[in-house]
Design a protein around this nucleic acid. Structure first.
Lengths: 135, 135
DNA sequence: CTTGACTCTGTAGTATAGTCCAGAGTGTAA
DNA sequence: TTACACTCTGGACTATACTACAGAGTCAAG
């Protein structure tokens, strides 16, 4: 499975064909190899890269930021000027982690408050064997 | 400073006037008090709330998700059906934190690699007393 | 009592990130 | 050798989240 067409990559990565072409135009994917017919050819690394993009998007990075992250992460360029940019990204990420931990603590407090207030009385959900539909 | 007009709130929160009105329309802010003239009146809690919104946006939550988070965090409604939703949010947040930690490790690796490869030779930035402009 | 800064509503425009064709070519299985 | 699924480019369309007016009212200082 070392050479895939775009439909296969879309299936494997869970990202639509049109979106993959769009990412290519935006410079998030390297210009892809082409068959004589003009069909794009991809390998497994593109699937990985698309997974990375999806994840980064969920974390609130814009496509422009993701392009930067990809350049840092997938380029074996020499050190110059990479070092500082990587440090900067790391500290952005640390800030995000701290914010999320703070949100989590706040929500945790709500849950605790809820439990102690309503455990014995009027909180159906605490007692219910609740499960969620997966999407 | 318990009663502010929209311009003051905008200044304090760093969020534009038009955006604040937009958030109100989208239900992220409670319907604001009005003076007889029709001018909105806010207090400090709105500034806080706007800060929370800004932070959540940076973390990749959509306005719809933020509305949910706000309902959970700023409503003293009784426990019913809040509990599970809060738990769900917490586990979303934990996933985000794990992803960020993974990204951070990857970037850290790049920095390390960079240091060990170029420390003595051709990596100007490692040696430079680099500082960043704050924004 | 006017002037300049501020606010109101309603509507239109913009940027980002896709998503959806149309019309044409490709590839392969029956 | 044709039928059907797949792919190509280019351009138009959409949703989300703002952002920018126009035209009218508010308000405090001088």
């Amino acid at each position: 499975m070392s050479s895939m067409r775009i439909g296969e990559v879309a299936k494997r990565s869970g990202i639509g064909i049109e979106t993959i072409r769009y990412y290519e135009r935006q410079g998030l994917l390297l210009e892809s190899e082409r068959r004589p017919s003009g069909y794009r050819q991809f390998d497994e690394s593109t699937v990985e890269r698309l997974g990375y993009i999806r994840q980064a998007k969920e974390l609130g990075f814009t496509l422009a930021e993701i392009r930067e992250l990809l350049e840092l992460s997938f380029t074996q360029s020499n050190c110059s000027h990479i070092h500082q940019r990587a440090e900067d990204k790391i500290s952005d990420i640390e800030t995000k982690i701290r914010s999320l931990q703070q949100m989590k603590r706040a929500l945790r407090k709500i849950v605790e408050h809820c439990k102690s207030n309503n455990l014995s009385a009027d909180c159906p959900l605490v007692h219910t064997n609740k499960r969620r539909e997966p999407k």
